[in-house]
Amino acid sequence: ANGLTVVQNQVLNLIKACPRPEGLNFQDLRSQLQHMPIASVKQAVDFLCNEGHIYSTVDDDHFKSTDAE
């Protein structure tokens, strides 16, 4: 419905759900999506960054969603 793939939505939802001020790090994302190939997770993160749905925070491995306050 939002124009994103299943993988992209899963990644976005996990990032949105993280309450930490620095956001979710890539390792946590990986461990929560163990069933997915790392390349697919990375691709989804790159796509979401490029589209402005998420952004990197304290370094290139931590992400927050632009939907969250």
Partner: peptide, 29 residues
């Protein structure tokens, strides 16, 4: 650990850039 002022500033800058990118992308569609 709480974020430093510098980290908070960087996060806010990146958030603004992402919001601008998102607006740009949705305008393209």
């Amino acid at each position: 650990l709480p974020l430093t002022e510098e980290q908070r500033k960087k996060i806010e800058e990146n958030r603004q850039k992402a919001l601008a990118r998102r607006a740009e992308k949705s305008a393209e569609q």
